[in-house]
């Protein structure tokens, strides 16, 4: 087909288009994904029984805050990488800083502890469950976010998929923190970070396949 005819056909479809699309699309995705993630937590795991007490402990807020900060940075990254010609920019720091902060706390706590106590700090009681559970609970947000990204236009599908994984992994880990009984920084630094890395890795692998346009 001749390009001029092609252009005429496209121009006939001119209609008012809202250009602030990423925000409402992502809001809709989260409106589906977050309740899904919470439902998986409540139905499959339940809240920790002493939740009322631990609300007063700073470590609980670190455990909730670190993944939430990663999720927010992931959201910003998805909104940016979903648009052609926009890079992740400073939003990557939003992922790195909370993780570095928890790693620093973990190193400090590790150094302070007597050698005999260290394995307990690191392995806790539930490290196996933690890894799988965070990935599983993250799934609804992950799927909803990839769906929103498909309606945007990511030109770096691997990075965009990883960003969706950061948002989902952060949301999943924050939800899981409401169930998980572990309260040590080394546990967070290793198992929460690895748990969040599962959807990130999955997103980076699936991105080039699922985010084609």
């Amino acid at each position: 087909m001749n390009t001029d005819h092609w252009i005429d056909a496209l121009a006939r479809q001119a209609e008012p288009v809202a250009t602030r699309q990423p925000a409402p699309l992502l809001a809709r995705a989260l409106a589906w994904g977050l309740p899904g993630t919470l439902a998986l937590l409540l139905l499959g795991y339940g809240l920790r029984p002493d939740l009322g007490t631990v609300l007063g402990w700073p470590m609980f807020w670190v455990k909730l805050g670190m993944p939430l900060a990663v999720a927010l940075a992931g959201l910003a990254l998805v909104a940016r990488l979903g648009r052609p010609g926009v890079s992740g920019g400073a939003a990557w720091w939003g992922v790195l800083l909370p993780v570095l902060l928890v790693w620093t706390m973990a190193a400090w706590q590790w150094a302070q502890a007597a050698p005999a106590d260290r394995p307990a700090l690191l392995w806790g009681q539930t490290w196996r469950g933690c890894l799988v559970s965070i990935g599983w609970i993250a799934l609804p947000v992950f799927v909803a976010t990839l769906g929103a990204l498909r309606q945007l236009a990511p030109t770096r599908p691997s990075l965009a998929g990883a960003a969706a994984g950061l948002l989902a992994g952060g949301a999943g880990a924050a939800a899981y923190a409401l169930h998980c009984p572990e309260m040590t920084a080394p546990f967070l630094a290793v198992w929460y970070v690895l748990g969040m890395a599962v959807p990130v890795l999955l997103g980076a692998l699936l991105g080039p396949r699922l985010l084609r346009w």
Partner: peptide
């Protein structure tokens, strides 16, 4: 041209148009 047409909602006025089209 078709891709630009289908994805034209992803351009925000704050972004240089050349960067968007180029990508």
């Amino acid at each position: 041209l078709l891709a630009i047409h289908n994805k034209r909602h992803t351009w925000l006025p704050a972004q240089p148009l050349s960067a968007w089209v180029h990508a």
